[in-house]
């Protein structure tokens, strides 16, 4: 078994998702069955094969090096759950 209680807690913490006890049990089961299933990729010989990360053959286009003033802070803040004086507001971080 690749995923145990400790591992699921560690991944959940890395993902910033709180899991309750029964949920953890379900995910341990799901993730193990998915990981067992993808194990079949080990049958494939990938020696000297370059990983494919981007299918697009296009070359990154350059843009002109000119500044654009887009003062859109009101728009950016429009959907914020909490804001204060032009900033996003979050729970206090420093005591």
């Amino acid at each position: 078994m690749k995923i145990d209680k400790n591992t699921i807690n560690k991944i959940a913490r890395l993902s910033r998702i709180k899991l309750d006890g029964t949920e953890s049990e379900d995910y341990i089961k799901d993730l193990n069955s998915i990981l067992d299933w993808v194990e079949q990729l080990n049958e494939v010989n990938t020696e000297n094969i370059e990983p494919l990360s981007n299918i697009s053959s296009s070359i990154l286009p350059k843009r002109e090096d000119v500044s654009k003033d887009t003062n859109s802070s009101d728009e950016i803040l429009k959907n914020a759950p909490d804001k204060l004086e032009g900033f996003f507001a979050v729970p206090k971080v420093v005591e």
Binding site: S15, T46, P51
Partner: peptide
Amino acid sequence: LIGTYVLSAGYYDAYYLKAQKVRKL
């Protein structure tokens, strides 16, 4: 959760990199 696991330290090569190589094939 599964995505975080396959990208996490120690598992990246075995899962994510391997998958990208098979994707090439």
